[in-house]
Design a protein around this nucleic acid. Structure first.
Length: 257
DNA sequence: ATGGTCGGGAACCGA
């Protein structure tokens, strides 16, 4: 099965581009981030018409995540545990056959330092706790989303310009490294150990034309899921399309168990 | 050059 993550940066503006990509890429399961609408405004019918089951966890105007799946979505859970007063819609989980999938949108954290950065780091701690519990299932699990972390300088076109950015700060990278140290496989980096691979190019400063990119959208596989990985990639051409998101889809293929 | 680009949703915040 083909599993993808795509930060659409507003489902309202992105529906045509999303539908075109779905028709071309034919993913079986997709985690969407930054849908930026309440559940009632999500274009559920248009996606169901393309053969997808839909589960949303929306928020008016910002954030918001969703899952699309050709197979039924069971056991849907909304919200990252451990934040009783956290109303930001950044986490959704579901069971798809034998696979547990998490769709996540980690906080950006800028400006750093400051309260937004503190929230980012605290959120990553909660993410680490939930990820540990999911790994302990010893089952196929995939964490799919916009982690808002560039893991290393190899994942940044202009590391010197980004050194103080929340996406590249040592604290952010340390949290991501601890996640990997739990036993998750970074699917895209495993497939392309040395290459320059980006998943985001800012709308400003002609970043796409200059290839000033970042790798911040990740697919993390539990050991049982990593054993089934046969391919992974980035659909970078989507960034050059009509009315593009500033992110592009990232995907992995898992062979059937 | 104290700018520049987007989306959501109706002024400005977040990215």
């Amino acid at each position: 099965m083909k599993v993808a993550t795509f930060n659409v940066n507003g489902i309202g503006a992105r529906l045509p581009a999303l539908l075109a990509w779905l028709a071309e890429a034919r993913p079986d399961l997709v985690a969407l981030q930054e849908i930026k609408v309440a559940d009632a405004r999500f274009p559920r019918a248009e996606l169901e018409a393309q053969g997808y089951h839909v589960a949303t966890h929306g928020e008016p105007g910002r954030n918001g995540v969703a899952l699309l799946s050709r197979m039924p979505l069971a056991g849907v859970e909304r919200g990252l545990p451990g934040g009783s007063d956290d109303r930001q819609a950044r986490w959704i989980e579901a069971q798809v056959g034998g696979l547990r999938v998490v769709g996540l949108y980690a906080p950006n954290g800028n400006p750093a330092p400051g309260p937004r950065f503190d929230y980012k780091i605290a959120w990553m701690e909660r993410c680490l706790a939930r990820a540990r519990a999911l790994l302990d299932l010893e089952a196929p699990v995939i964490l799919a989303g916009d982690f808002n972390v560039c893991p290393t300088d190899r994942d940044v076109a202009r590391p010197e310009a980004m050194a103080e950015d929340a996406l590249c700060r040592p604290e952010s990278r340390a949290a991501f490294r601890r996640l990997l140290a739990q036993g998750w496989t970074d699917a895209l980096r495993a497939r392309f150990p040395q290459d320059e691979v980006y998943t985001f190019w800012d709308y400003q400063d002609g970043a796409w034309a200059r290839n000033w990119g970042l790798r911040i959208d990740h697919l993390l596989l539990s050991p049982a899921a990593a054993d089934r990985m046969t391919d992974a990639g980035v659909d970078a051409a989507v960034r050059g399309g009509e009315r593009p998101s500033d992110h592009v889809p990232v995907w992995v293929v898992l062979e059937d168990s």
